[in-house]
Design a protein around this nucleic acid. Structure first.
Lengths: 199, 199
DNA sequence: TTCATTTTATGATCTTAATCATAAAGTAAG
DNA sequence: CTTACTTTATGATTAAGATCATAAAATGAA
């Protein structure tokens, strides 16, 4: 996350997006650095049959869609508002200038990319070799880690993801997620209180 | 890739690894920046049943295993020499100092991470939503793009990967890869000359 | 507060890639 | 040159998750 004040000073503007609105499409050329101010943005792909894969969900303070700003390639996925959102938008050249003039921001930014690469490396391995329950737990733990400081395994973290979103994040079908979650509850790996998952 | 001369000046040493030798294991703490001087290194994961997933294959000039140097996490995968190799090894603190003192190297390095993130985003989406033939073509095109400047679709690029490696890169089984490749040949998407794949 | 949509749920059936079995060709090691 | 291992190959069977069908709750919009 870059300090919003710094962003504004560098020339960023705050844009509003309604639930369902698309910020950019897969294969488009990247022109801006984006950072969530309010709301939730997802990046996703659809295959020929319309099956969705969610690359990531970005909440307050998170940036997304930066990699294509650094090299000659287009967006690997779409970006869409999950709920009504406000997003900082900084033109590419101004963003690169900002990094250039602020080595500490550049370093922090590199760390962010590194962490995202780490997450992707784990997920691609999970999806290709692990069974549904294992994959789901990984996603839950990733969201828990990113949204709490709680390091216990007390099943106290409330998962704010629908079964469908979990399916789209893990490459599974919603029915499979529902059934797997039930099994995980029986095994004591998570708990379900009026339909909400706790991990 | 960082200029080998610069690496050596910064304090890097050149280490030898025999085919099959492991440079580091998953979950270990990262201590060095690595860059291939000669040979081939793969990064991979194994699941409980021993099924392998290959995160990437790194040839001459490519670096690997850098992300954990930037934040407080461990290696997401193992690194192993596919063939006898020589690898530059630079201690973490010296590597970070090198980036700090050379903004142009830092920027280039960020581009490398960005490109890798792009590749991972594509592969995770492919693996989770696409059928075998589609996945295999993606990997072939990725390797073609990274190893030639040839932009034609002349089926002139010789793929130096075994069927098993293709399987481990795509999360498929070797038999499935063999059968898919045959179908792709019939469709004219690739050609096979004495068992070697051309794309 | 009614209606439409989304989310969660469950059972039955199907399909695709995994698995299992076996072997020939190619390569490397001694 | 022989032996061991790796790679490619192919057919038969199986199993896991996808798909299909249906519906009750829950949520949200008008």
């Amino acid at each position: 996350m870059i300090n919003p004040k710094k962003l504004r000073d560098a020339g960023a503007i705050l844009k509003n997006y309604k639930r369902g609105e698309v910020l950019f499409y897969e294969d488009a050329i990247a022109r801006y650095y984006y950072q969530v101010d309010q709301g939730e943005i997802k990046m996703n792909n659809y295959n020929q049959e319309g099956k969705e894969y969610i690359q990531g969900i970005f909440a307050k303070g998170k940036s997304f869609g930066e990699p294509p700003l650094f090299a000659d390639f287009t967006y690997p996925a779409n970006a869409e508002a999950i709920i009504d959102s406000k997003v900082w938008q900084l033109p590419k050249d101004k963003f690169l200038k900002l990094l250039e003039e602020n080595p500490e921001i550049h370093h922090k930014f590199t760390s962010t990319l590194a962490l995202r690469l780490y997450y992707k490396a784990i997920m691609v391995s999970e999806i290709s070799t692990q069974e549904p329950e294992h994959r789901i737990l990984r996603i839950l733990d990733y969201f828990k880690k990113n949204n709490t400081t709680d390091k216990t395994d007390s099943l106290s973290y409330k998962v704010e993801l629908t079964r469908q979103q979990l399916a789209d994040l893990t490459g599974l079908r919603v029915e499979t997620v529902i059934r797997s979650i039930k099994k995980l509850e029986q095994k004591g790996e998570l708990s379900i209180k009026n339909r909400k998952v706790y991990r």
